[in-house]
């Protein structure tokens, strides 16, 4: 059984948690111009690495709050636990975040508000 370090309650057994799958999937903003193929990247396609994986867990039988975990999918080693809305700090987990194909998707670009400036919108 895994032991996870809930940022709010400390080290607990896996049985207290539920797993929410891949972390850092940003929802495209309303009014986006994505086609169905690009939207599928957000909706269905998933990072499924053999190696460091960034995922969401919830302390379902405890504080019931969500948090992020960086975990290795072969050794099951838990590299880091970090708060929702923040990015990982360890080198391996940061690298996994930056090198993920999702960073380059149109869906992720459409999840950020357009920069004000040149187009004047």
């Amino acid at each position: 059984m895994l032991q996870l370090n809930c940022p709010f309650c400390g080290l607990r057994d896996e049985a207290e948690f539920s797993c929410g799958g891949e972390a850092h999937i940003a929802r495209p903003l309303a009014g986006n111009q994505l086609n169905d193929k690009d939207f599928a990247d957000y909706l269905f396609l998933r990072d499924n690495p053999k190696g460091v994986f960034l995922e969401r867990w919830r302390h379902a039988a405890g504080c019931r709050r969500w948090f992020n975990v960086a975990r290795h999918t072969v050794s099951h080693e838990i590299i880091e636990t970090y708060a929702m809305g923040s990015l990982p700090k360890s080198k391996a987990a940061r690298q996994a975040y930056q090198e993920s194909w999702r960073r380059k998707t149109a869906a992720e670009a459409a999840s950020k508000p357009a920069k004000k400036g040149k187009e004047g919108r």
Binding site: M1, L2, E14, F17, S18, C19, G21, N48, K50, F53, E55, R71, T73, V74, S75, H76
Partner: peptide, 10 residues
């Protein structure tokens, strides 16, 4: 409940 390539579970 979690992703793995380790051919073992909890």
């Amino acid at each position: 409940k979690y992703n793995s390539y380790a051919q073992r579970g909890s």
